[in-house]
Amino acid sequence: MTKDSVEAEEARDRPKTRHIDVLLGQRVRLVRDAKPVSREDMADYLGVSVATIQRYENGSQRIAAARLWQICRRLDVKLAHLFAGLPHQVMTDGGVAEERRSTFDREDGRAKTLVLLAKAVGKLPADRLEIAVPVVKALKPNRKR
């Protein structure tokens, strides 16, 4: 076996990025943006490059368990929070499990909206913040019993 063929075989055996890596990376980015922690701050904390943080967040590079634990410590978030609501089975022989995709997309869209709302509310001065709370509560739909 030549060196090239050995390297090609090893490359085939390496785990490929799965859909879950993309979803997890998106979650990390949403939380990081909401805190707000810059990519540069996160890279400095972890001792990696900003490009590595970008690869984590776009799912092109898997996040090792120990690294994910460090990310959660820096963002002051529980590990379970990053996985909450993710589909249990994200890959099948035919690709992404379709039965859970639409539900997750709605949940992910809601999470992004909540992050945008949190950012906007976080920029409000104290006197406006006191007004915002009852306004948001008033938007809650009434439940009929």
Rank of each mutant, 00 (worst) to 15 (best):
41 D>R: 03
127 D>E: 11
81 H>E: 05
127 D>C: 05
75 L>M: 00
125 P>N: 03
59 G>E: 00
73 R>M: 07
46 L>M: 13
131 I>M: 04
38 S>L: 01
127 D>T: 10
101 R>L: 02
53 I>E: 11
66 A>M: 13
67 R>E: 06
98 E>S: 05
116 L>A: 00
109 G>Q: 01
40 E>P: 02
92 T>V: 09
83 F>E: 08
92 T>C: 12
75 L>N: 00
97 A>Y: 11
38 S>Y: 03
44 D>G: 13
70 Q>M: 01
107 E>A: 14
70 Q>Y: 01
75 L>K: 04
56 Y>F: 11
80 A>E: 14
120 A>Q: 10
76 D>C: 02
69 W>K: 15
108 D>C: 05
107 E>L: 06
49 S>N: 14
65 A>K: 11
59 G>H: 01
94 G>W: 08
73 R>V: 02
102 S>Q: 15
89 Q>E: 10
98 E>L: 07
61 Q>P: 14
56 Y>W: 12
126 A>R: 05
106 R>C: 04
57 E>G: 04
132 A>V: 00
105 D>A: 06
54 Q>D: 15
49 S>T: 15
100 R>F: 12
92 T>L: 04
68 L>N: 08
128 R>V: 00
100 R>A: 12
88 H>K: 14
45 Y>T: 07
114 L>G: 09
58 N>M: 11
118 A>S: 05
101 R>D: 07
77 V>L: 06
109 G>P: 01
41 D>P: 02
63 I>V: 15
70 Q>W: 07
68 L>E: 11
58 N>Y: 09
43 A>H: 14
89 Q>A: 09
